[in-house]
Design a protein around this nucleic acid. Structure first.
Lengths: 170, 170
DNA sequence: AGTTTATGTCAGCAATGTTGACATTCCAAG
DNA sequence: CTTGGAATGTCAACATTGCTGACATAAACT
């Protein structure tokens, strides 16, 4: 098909660095690891009748307090209608505070309430514990490689968003 | 909360290797990268009115032809009812062949048809192209680290499934 | 033979993605 | 200043894909 070159007697023993089999292993590793990556927060969220979408919203509002709906959905990569449902629940439940913009009244500036911060902490902690263990097991140089490959795998606009977050962080 | 130790004046400048900020960057990298990772197949699938679930089924049936529904759902980590819906569509559309087991007639052995293989190739190629580019950009040692961290991030049973797939592959 | 266990299918519900229609606010052209 | 269009966010309805529950069939155990 589109670009087929599937291990047809050349890739596997050539001097080229990447066989299709190696790439497939990477694909599967990504799939299995992402499940592990979300498993711990998912368990907490299930108890509270929330989902991954709520976690993502909490995470990025915490990361950039005062952010607007528009900005948030460009980072999350979902439609505003989809995000709206999640935000509405979080606001109703008193985890997020949505304030009408001062400069532009069409905008809503989003903040976590104390309870919102509390849940965000709980979720992030769960995820960090696993991440910390994985980093420790793999070692520092592995972590550098890990991040480098992930960054190269992003779409270019997400790479920009990611870089901005890193700068703003500290 | 459960294990809170969030950059409270100690983690960030201690001799410890992992600050909360570093961990958070890893978390966000994982989130953005996974979106890139699935973006290309998603576009193809959308044209065909299929979803990620169909892609995953095709991938692992291709990987282990003759596998059973039971085995497949343990790898995919979904319920059999959820998988069944997807498989039914693939069988009806002539991409997957479901044969009653010879030894145990309760089981169904799953195979890709020619058309199924064709679509699987198309999807995998799209994903491999991006993966290949990311690997190339990041370099060989980075890839080693990438895989090591991902593997450490999996749940233990998934790590086993992953290892088995690698062995069976070759 | 009869109960229990395993495998897979069918039906209906929940979470979360989508598009479409709309209200409010801002801004720019006249 | 007003008016028309663009931007922002909300509400409604639908599709995909998780889920649980109920069931049919085959195997296994007693």
């Amino acid at each position: 098909m589109s670009e087929g070159r599937s291990g047809s007697g050349f890739g596997s023993e050539s001097l080229l660095f990447l066989t299709d089999e190696q790439l497939r292993q990477g694909i599967e590793a990504m799939f299995f690891a992402y499940r592990g990556f979300t498993a711990d927060p998912d368990r907490i969220l299930a108890e509270l009748a929330y989902g991954r979408a709520h976690h993502r919203a909490l995470h990025f509002i915490n990361r950039a307090p005062g952010t607007t709906v528009n900005n948030l959905l460009s980072i999350l990569g979902v439609t505003k209608q989809s995000l709206n449902r999640v935000l509405r629940a979080l606001v109703e439940d008193g985890l997020v505070d949505s304030r009408v913009g001062t400069l532009d009244k069409r905008e809503r500036n989003l903040y976590l309430t104390a309870r919102g911060e509390e849940l965000e902490q709980r979720l992030s902690d769960a995820q960090r514990i696993r991440m910390r263990a994985a980093y420790k097991e793999a070692g520092p140089e592995a972590v550098q490689g890990f991040k480098r490959v992930l960054e190269a795998m992003m779409d270019s606009d997400m790479r920009r968003a990611y870089a901005e977050l890193r700068e703003s962080a500290q």
